[in-house]
Every structure is written in C-alpha cells, then in structure tokens.
C-alpha cells in the first residue's frame, strides 16, 4: 500500500512584492491561506503546481506545502508555513500588518 497523501496547497512569492501567495481553486492568487485550494489528490497537486509554474510573470518559486482542513479553510501544518501566513514575530509587518490574519 502506498502512503496516504498529505493534503497540499500551492504556494509561492509574488513577483513584484515578494510576499507569500496561495493558489485558489478558481485560479487566483490569494494572500490568505484559508482561501487556498486544499488539494487532496497527488496527481491533481502536480497539475496545479505545473499551472503555477507557468505563471512566471506573477509568482516566483511555486511549491507544494502540507496543509490540513481547518474551521475557516485550509491551515498550514509546519511552523515555517504558519510563519509565512503571518510575517515576522518581532514586528507587526507582513501579512499581519495587511490584515490578512
């Protein structure tokens, strides 16, 4: 039996601002992790990543990050991804400043 697939979101950095973005089910890039498409199928995840990779004028460095379903939408699993949803812990800068969290 193959290992169960951990659900994923597609994430990247915006080309101009550099801030963290997520791919939505309707093909937008959102700053809000909860709006991301939670991908539960490995083959679909690869297709979505390819789609992100083709948008090189909008984003940089797309990759698949582990996520899980939360009360308000997808949530990050790893602490690194949790920090990426907010911004640094020493100043209220980044997404927390923009009111996305």
């Amino acid at each position: 039996m193959s290992r169960a697939f951990t659900p994923k979101v597609v994430t990247a950095n915006a080309l101009i601002e550099g801030d963290v973005v997520y791919l939505t089910a309707d093909d937008r890039w959102t700053r809000d992790h909860a709006e991301a498409e939670l991908i539960e199928d490995e083959a679909h995840a690869q297709l979505r990543l390819l789609r992100a990779d083709r948008q090189r004028d909008i984003v940089v460095g797309a990759y698949l990050a582990d996520a899980r379903q939360g009360a308000g939408g997808p949530e990050p699993v790893h602490f690194r991804e949790a920090f990426r949803t907010r911004g640094p812990s020493n100043y209220p800068h980044g997404k927390q400043e923009a009111g996305h969290v």
Partner: peptide
C-alpha cells in the same frame, strides 16, 4: 527573462527572495 535566468543576475546585485519579501 524567466526567474531561472534572472535569479543569478539579482543575486550578483545583492537581491535575495526571502520568506515574506525580497
């Protein structure tokens, strides 16, 4: 320019892409 082409050029000029921003 693709990111693959641009990356070495920006790094030569001290510009990194970090966790939340450049």
């Amino acid at each position: 320019l693709t990111e693959e082409e641009f990356r070495p050029l920006r790094l030569m000029n001290g510009l990194y892409l970090q966790l939340h921003a450049y």
